[in-house]
Simulated scan of single mutants.
Amino acid sequence: MYSILLNVLITVAQVVGGIISGSLALLSDALHNFSDVLSLVISYIGHKLSRRKATISQTFGFKRSELIAAFINAITLVGVAIYLVYEAIERFIDPVTIKPGLVIWLAVLGIVANGISVLLLKDDANHNLNMKSAYLHLLTDMMASVAVLIGGLLMMYFQIYWVDSLLTLLIAIYLIIVGVKLLGDSTKMLMLFTPDSINIKDIVHEVHKIPGANKLHHIHVWHLNEEELHLEAHLDCTEDITLSQFNELLHKIEKVLFEKFHINHVNIQPEYKKEDPKDFIVQD
């Protein structure tokens, strides 16, 4: 919560300062900080929502709400970054006189406030992927503020005003890279794509090593959220075993899937000589 308040303070100060000073780099850095505010708010709300219990009408609870918010934020982030590129090019064509003194002081404020936020999130970032993402976002913000500070000093002492537009372009390009990656990752998860780190053939190969497992097929692997990796499949058994025997077999399969592929939610339908497609991937 303190990190959110600090970033709100930075954003407001940089927007006001950017308008007064005429610095586009300061405004673009303010946009970046505002995206961090959204990121931190989403992390906070997502953390709260993820604690809600599943219900009959919401069997997965709200575990995918962060993905929807990330998808929306990514589209917005890329759109605004493209607009910043346009504005920076306009400034190259038609330069504007900038007041570097205000730019310098606000850049220093950004460095200090983001530095404090980074320290506040550092411990949580070591064991929480969501917090690590926010931590790295704030760390890059601090670096962006350092770039704006350097630009302000160059404008003050060497009257190199075009550096403001150059820094804006660099920050915008960075925002596009981050936004496109976020958009790609969230889209893959929302579309239930197989994670990039998972090879279906490797899973089949490992499961088939287990005695009693004849043919793993009709396989689906997807991320419910960043922490939950699910697998569902059909398993053709070598023998007509009892339910208790299948439980033992299932336990061995779950152990292999978790240890080798970090799959922590497994749902397997047992079969014995059932007449159905035995391909790894089956069109439902």
Rank of each mutant, 00 (worst) to 15 (best):
H223G: 00
H223N: 13
H223E: 07
L224Y: 03
L224W: 02
L224F: 06
N225K: 11
N225R: 11
N225V: 07
N225G: 05
N225M: 08
N225F: 05
E226L: 11
E226N: 14
E226C: 02
E226D: 13
E226S: 13
E227M: 08
E228C: 03
E228I: 14
E228Y: 09
E228M: 09
L229S: 01
H230L: 09
H230M: 10
H230Y: 12
L231M: 11
L231E: 00
L231A: 01
L231K: 04
L231Q: 01
E232K: 11
E232I: 05
E232Y: 04
E232N: 11
E232D: 14
E232C: 09
A233N: 04
A233D: 04
A233W: 02
A233I: 08
A233F: 05
A233V: 05
A233E: 02
A233H: 03
H234S: 07
H234I: 07
H234E: 08
H234D: 10
H234R: 11
H234N: 11
H234A: 05
L235E: 01
L235M: 15
L235C: 10
L235V: 14
L235I: 15
L235P: 00
L235G: 00
D236I: 08
D236N: 15
C237Y: 07
C237N: 07
C237W: 01
C237R: 10
C237I: 10
T238C: 07
T238N: 12
E239H: 15
E239G: 04
E239W: 09
D240H: 15
D240G: 02
D240N: 15
D240C: 06
I241D: 03
I241L: 12
I241F: 09
I241G: 02
T242I: 07
T242K: 14
T242C: 05
T242E: 08
L243S: 11
S244L: 11
S244M: 12
S244H: 13
S244F: 10
S244G: 01
Q245T: 05
Q245I: 02
Q245Y: 05
Q245W: 04
F246H: 06
F246M: 08
F246E: 02
F246R: 07
N247A: 10
N247R: 15
N247E: 13
N247K: 15
N247V: 07
E248P: 02
E248H: 15
L249C: 04
L249F: 08
L250T: 02
L250P: 00
L250K: 15
L250I: 04
L250F: 14
H251N: 10
H251L: 10
H251F: 11
H251A: 12
H251C: 04
H251R: 14
K252N: 10
K252I: 02
K252C: 03
K252G: 00
K252L: 06
I253C: 06
I253P: 00
I253K: 01
I253M: 13
I253H: 02
I253E: 00
I253T: 05
E254R: 14
E254W: 10
E254P: 04
E254A: 10
